[in-house]
């Protein structure tokens, strides 16, 4: 390989990184996200320092969570909504989280194949990230990645995840407004509500409305009926269901208006600030839990016995509680 070209932003020194992010360098922004997501122990102090430097410029975006079942049309919706948001004069960052394989730890990150028009726009930045084994299908450091995007001048940030496991609650817990995608054929509104995730949603979208407009409209109407029975997440914003066709563009502008309305209603009632305050505390605990777990599994005594203990639990030779206790003793967290 030939000699590396000069790196104008001085990215090789961590000190230049925050400057690069603020100065609008895509390369610096991308590197900063990699740094805050890094699992290398000696990267952590560097990441914390960068986040500290960027802090004055964070917090200013509308943070949108977007989740739904596989095949519900999330990326296609983001492609359409994103282009509209940019056309309205905003700068948009998309953090797309894809599940990592539980077997190999690897992942296939294909979201940009569905967002190729959006990904060409100057005012857009799209970063797919693997969930990397974090709970709930969201990367453990997504909240930090959001802040880095904000410091880079993006005033709308969309976090997109597959709605499996705890993902919806996780995403709703790190964003200002939460959008849930439903397939029009997935049962009636009440059934959807019983699944629990609906009560987190500020907007429920029936995407792919072009495939079967009648079914989508009917499902949307049933959902709105059901939602009227439900207690809203905050008194300031009652959730609503809408239909969108990403292909024809029908409903895209209305969805954006609805999201802005949610934000404004919450801000007027003082609920937006409260939500972010609560999220701050939750994030602190999340961080603690993740770090404790990571310390625990990298403990040498634990590493030596972990596979064997898992095996013993799997075969029923040892109760899960007993195995956990023995490992905690090994790590010096309990006295034997």
């Amino acid at each position: 390989m030939n000699a590396p070209a000069a790196q104008p932003e001085g990215l090789s020194s961590p000190l230049g990184l925050a400057e690069g992010v603020r100065g609008g360098s895509r390369r610096a922004l991308a590197k900063a996200i990699t740094l805050v997501e890094s699992t290398r122990p000696d990267d952590l102090p560097l990441a914390l320092a960068r986040l500290e430097e960027l802090r004055p410029d964070t917090g200013g975006s509308l943070r949108i969570g977007l989740s739904g079942a596989p095949g519900a049309g999330k990326s296609t919706l983001v492609e359409a909504l994103g282009q509209h948001v940019v056309a309205c004069g905003h700068r948009l960052a998309v953090l797309a989280i894809d599940p990592s394989s539980a077997v190999s730890g690897g992942s296939v990150l294909g979201d940009k194949t569905r967002m190729s028009d959006l990904s060409r726009l100057e005012a857009a930045f799209i970063r797919p990230s693997p969930s990397a084994g974090a709970h709930g299908g969201v990367s453990a450091r997504t909240p930090e990645a959001i802040e880095v995007c904000e410091a880079a001048g993006f005033d709308v940030v969309i976090v997109e995840t597959v709605g499996v496991g705890q993902a919806e609650a996780e995403v709703a817990g790190m964003t200002d407004v939460f959008v849930l995608l439903e397939l029009p054929f997935a049962g009636d509104g009440l059934q959807a509500i019983k699944r629990g995730s609906t009560e987190l949603a500020d907007v429920i979208v029936y995407a792919k409305a072009d495939l079967d407009p009648v079914a989508a409209t009917a499902a949307c109407a049933r959902m709105n009926d059901a939602l009227s029975l439900l207690r809203p997440v905050s008194a300031a914003a009652r959730p609503r269901a809408v239909t969108v066709s990403a292909h024809s563009g029908q409903g895209v502008a209305e969805l954006w208006t609805e999201l802005e309305r949610c934000r404004d209603a919450r801000a007027a009632a003082g609920a937006a600030a409260v939500r972010r305050q609560r999220q701050g505390i939750a994030r602190m605990w999340r961080f603690i839990e993740a770090e404790l777990r990571s310390d625990f599994v990298s403990d040498n005594a634990v590493r030596e016995r972990l596979a064997e203990m898992e095996e013993a639990v799997a075969r029923g030779e040892m109760t899960p509680a007993r195995a956990a206790n023995e490992l905690l003793v090994l790590a010096g967290r309990r006295s034997g």
Binding site: S101, S104, G106, V108, L109, K112, T113, S119
Partner: peptide, 17 residues
């Protein structure tokens, strides 16, 4: 190749055509 590398534990981005 993308599928095989992901099974080996790579994070694989698939670009558009």
């Amino acid at each position: 190749v993308a599928s095989g590398l992901a099974d080996l534990g790579f994070d694989v981005d698939i670009g558009p055509l």
